[in-house]
Structure formats: structure tokens, C-alpha cells
């Protein structure tokens, strides 16, 4: 066994491979880049724009963490992952965190040994059909051909939904969102099903979005959130509280516009604690005092990110719904910064 261990070290040296020990933070800082796993392309959440810059709601979370840890929201290496490769990539250390509209489920958390640090989007699986089909409810879909993106929880939910309603259907499994859309538009499936946000994003891309309706049924709970590996709790804390800082900032009215002004002085103690002018929260995380200030200055608060990438002024046009602050009837509720 000793010989094998020695060989292991030798091989590691020969391969020039860096070892990902427990301290992800140290690695990230030494590397000067955050490796963040994102979707291969889902407009609004993560997609490269015409200049090849990654942009979107999930991408903003990566940039926020990079701003907190590396003082530079652009110091992110975006690694696009499919449904199949995302978990091996995270568990093998290829990425430091995953922000790839991934549903928080029991088995992923417990069995696959990951740590979901929170929820950045409360989603649910929905259905989209062409208006011309005159379908108003998912229970009228008996016998329909359904396009599904594979590698997600979607196909299981779908099977459950149709079985529990005693309906038959014809599933068409598809690898990427782009191809699903191609097939749906061509009419080779009647229904396209995926997370409601994804449906809205897809519909926004259509030539005539109003020709398509999202059915009222939401057949599953899909809390999407960033996740990290089990075992490195310091790193998990950093990602978790970066996300919480985004949410709390909206609740407390800190925006990218006024963050510098508020950092100059405010009479709200929690704002001061977040922005590092009071207390030593940053130090406890292993970062400097101004980490959250940088985060908010770089990407804005949760509401700003939402409005920029998904909100009603964007082509995607999602309402806040469940993703409103708890004070406004939503589910977003950051634990206190104290």
C-alpha cells in the first residue's frame, strides 16, 4: 500500500496535477480563477452572448462568488456541463461550484454527496403548447407527443404525472434545449415540458411568443440552487452567504447604485454588518471585510439580477412569483447577517 501511495504521489507530480485538498478557497485564490459549472446554453440562466461572454441568472451567482473571493467578477472560468456531466465534474473537482439550474433533491444531496447551499430560483415543471391546439389544461394532453430534455428530473415527473392521471403519452427525449425548441417549433411534438422558467425563456425566443401558451399546471417542485461538494464546509459557507447577501441586499434596499454610499455610513446596523463597516463577518468567512460590498457592486442585489436576466423587462418576462421576497409574499428569506 505504501508503494502504491508513493506511486500515486509520483504520478501526480508527473501529471502536473494540482491536488484539490479540503481547502477549495485556497485553491481558488491560488489559481486566481473560479471554476464554475454552468448550463451549456439556456438563455436567461446561462448562455454565451455574441461576443462569447457568459451571461445570465446562474452566471451572475458565479460572478458574485468570484467578486467575493477574488475581488474580480470576471475571474470566472465557465465550464459548460450537460445533465450527464455536471455531477461527475463537481465531485471530481473539475469545478469548484455548480450553478446550473440544478434541482435540490434528497438523493442528490444525500446519496450523491453534494451540498446545496440554498435556492436561487423556485421553479416547477410546466408545459408549453401551441395556442392553435386549444388546450387549456395539462389533463387534456392524453395521447400527446411530449418533448423532454433528458438528464433531468423532468422525465421522471412527467412519467408520474401521466401515470397518476391515467393518460398515455409519447415521450421524445432530446439532449439540448436548442434541439427541443427546433422540434417543438417544427411540430414534431405537441408539448414541450421542462422547468417553467426554461419554458418562458424558450418561448421568449420564438418569433411569435404569443402563439404559445404555458399551461397552468405546475407538476413538480423544482428548487434550483448552487451546490458544492460535501466536506468543505468553509467553501460551502462562502457560496451560501454570497447567495444570502444577494437576497438580503434586496430586502434591505442595497443596490449596486447605492452600495458605495451606504458603505460610507448608514444607521441600519444590518446593512453596516453586510457591507463590513461594522463587525467582522468577512473575517469569519475567511475573506476581507468588504466582500459583500464587492458582490453587490459587481452584480447588484437579487432583484437587480432577476430584473436584468429574467424579469418582465427582458424578452423572457418572468414574474417574480414565488421568487419575491418573503415580505412581498414570496419564498425568498435570507437568514439574518449577525
Amino acid at each position: 500500500m505504501k508503494l502504491l501511495n508513493f506511486l500515486g504521489v509520483a504520478a501526480a507530480v508527473v501529471l502536473g496535477a494540482g491536488t484539490v485538498a479540503a481547502a477549495t478557497l485556497d485553491d481558488v485564490q491560488a489559481r486566481g480563477k473560479l471554476n464554475c459549472g454552468v448550463n451549456t446554453g439556456l438563455v436567461g440562466f446561462a448562455a454565451p452572448d455574441a461576443n462569447g461572454e457568459w451571461d445570465g441568472f446562474d452566471v451572475a451567482v458565479c460572478r458574485a462568488v468570484a467578486a467575493a473571493v477574488l475581488n474580480d467578477p470576471s475571474a470566472v472560468e465557465f465550464i459548460s456541463l450537460t445533465g450527464k456531466t455536471r455531477f461527475p465534474a463537481l465531485s471530481s473537482g473539475e469545478v469548484d461550484m455548480l450553478s446550473r439550474n440544478t434541482t435540490w433533491t434528497f438523493s442528490r444531496d444525500v446519496d450523491l454527496k453534494f451540498e446545496f447551499v440554498g435556492v436561487n430560483y423556485y421553479d416547477g415543471q410546466g408545459f408549453m403548447v401551441p395556442r392553435s391546439l386549444n388546450v387549456s389544461s395539462a389533463t387534456e394532453l392524453d395521447g400527446a407527443t411530449v418533448c423532454i430534455q433528458t438528464g433531468t428530473t423532468t422525465e421522471l415527473n412527467l412519467a408520474d404525472f401521466f401515470r397518476s392521471n391515467n393518460m398515455s403519452y409519447d415521450p421524445v427525449p432530446i439532449e439540448t434545449n436548442a434541439e427541443a425548441r427546433q422540434q417543438y417549433i417544427a411540430g414534431s411534438c405537441d408539448v414541450y415540458t421542462t422547468d417553467a422558467s426554461g419554458l418562458a425563456a424558450t418561448r421568449a425566443n420564438f418569433e411569435n411568443p404569443s402563439d404559445h401558451v404555458l399551461l397552468p399546471e405546475i407538476v413538480s417542485k423544482e428548487p434550483l440552487g448552487p451546490l458544492v461538494r460535501h466536506g468543505d464546509h468553509e467553501w460551502g459557507d462562502i457560496v451560501r452567504w454570497t447567495l444570502n447577501a444577494l437576497i438580503a441586499a434586496e430586502e434591505l434596499g442595497i443596490t449596486s447604485a447605492n452600495v458605495n454610499e451606504l458603505a460610507g455610513g448608514t444607521n441600519s446596523p444590518e446593512v453596516s454588518r453586510i457591507l463590513g463597516t461594522e463587525g467582522n463577518l468577512g473575517e469569519m468567512l475567511g475573506l476581507d471585510a468588504e466582500w459583500a460590498k464587492r458582490v453587490i457592486a459587481a452584480v447588484g442585489n437579487y432583484g437587480e439580477i432577476f430584473a436584468k436576466h429574467l424579469g418582465e423587462s427582458t424578452p423572457i418576462g418572468l414574474e417574480r412569483g414565488l421568487n419575491a421576497q418573503w415580505t412581498e409574499g414570496g419564498l425568498l428569506y435570507s437568514p439574518p447577517f449577525r
Binding site: D111, T150, E155, L156, P173, E175
Partner: peptide, 24 residues
């Protein structure tokens, strides 16, 4: 077949089953 969504063995065992069970 995986490119067109035909459910051959790469699509079932190497595709959805692998994804759902994580037994790579």
C-alpha cells in the same frame, strides 16, 4: 443515436439510467 434521441442502449443504460441513478 444519442444525438437524435433514439433510445438505443446508449440512450437508456448509458443515458437516462446513468443520469437518474448516478451509477456511472
Amino acid at each position: 443515436a444519442i444525438a437524435v434521441g433514439y433510445m438505443d442502449i446508449t440512450g437508456t443504460l448509458g443515458g437516462i439510467t446513468l443520469n437518474q441513478t448516478g451509477r456511472a
